[in-house]
Amino acid sequence: MSAEPAHPGPDPRHPARVITFPTASRPPRHKRQETRVPAEPLTPEQRLAASLEKTFAKHGHTLTDETTAEVFTITLGIARDMLEGARHSEAINDGQHRELDALYLGMLAAPGILGGE
């Protein structure tokens, strides 16, 4: 007596349908706006803004979009609150706090730099 397979496969009387998905990347969720990266030579702040914008662009977003910029600003505000907590709990000292907070402040300026403000 031969063993029957546990799952014999598709029923030949009812051929399986194949669902295909397009391979193109999905469109951005927000309307893209033109990014205004300042012309060369760039200041350190402009280089940082351009670097951040490049990262957002890889994900189909731009910091010149009002909603994206707002979420970015809120997120950095949360990160700065956590940084403040790290200073108060002495996980970092005052000097480290100043250095890290300066980086966050530089990042917070990016939407304004890119948007021409």
Results as ranks from 00 to 15, higher is better:
G95T: 10
S89T: 06
L105D: 14
N93P: 01
G95M: 11
A102V: 05
P41F: 05
G112E: 02
G60S: 12
M107H: 01
P22C: 14
E84D: 04
R17F: 04
S25P: 14
H30K: 07
F72W: 08
A91S: 14
F56P: 02
R32W: 10
Q96A: 14
G112L: 10
V37W: 01
H61I: 05
I113N: 00
S89M: 04
L103E: 07
P44K: 08
R36H: 07
S89P: 03
P15V: 13
A16E: 13
G95I: 15
P41Y: 10
A86G: 04
P15F: 09
H7I: 11
G9W: 05
R13G: 13
D81M: 14
P27K: 11
L105N: 15
E34A: 11
L52D: 02
I74R: 07
E45K: 04
H30W: 05
S2Q: 09
T64E: 00
T64H: 03
E90N: 12
G85C: 08
I92F: 02
F56R: 11
M1P: 04
L48D: 01
E4H: 13
K31D: 14
T55S: 12
S51L: 15
L103A: 05
V37N: 00
R87P: 03
R87T: 00
L63M: 03
L63G: 04
R98I: 05
M82T: 07
H97V: 02
H97S: 05
R29A: 11
L48V: 10
P38I: 01
E40V: 11
A69H: 00
P28C: 08
T64C: 02
I92A: 06
A69N: 06
T73Y: 00
D101T: 05
E53P: 00
P41D: 11
E90I: 00
G77T: 07
L105S: 13
A3D: 14
P12S: 09
V71Y: 09
G85R: 02
H14L: 15
G115Q: 04
F72Q: 01
T23V: 15
P8S: 15
G112H: 03
T73F: 03
L103I: 14
V71S: 07
R80I: 12
E66G: 00
S89E: 10
V71E: 09
T75A: 08
E70N: 07
H59G: 09
G60P: 09
D65Y: 02
A49N: 01
T73S: 05
K54A: 15
Q33V: 01
I78G: 11
R17W: 05
E34W: 00
A79W: 06
Q33E: 02
S51C: 10
P41G: 10
A6S: 14
G116E: 06
A16Y: 01
P12D: 01
H61V: 07
P44E: 12
T43P: 00
I92Y: 00
R36N: 10
E99M: 14
A39P: 09
R87A: 05
H88D: 12
D81P: 01
R17G: 02
T35K: 00
A50N: 08
T75M: 00
D11A: 13
L52Y: 02
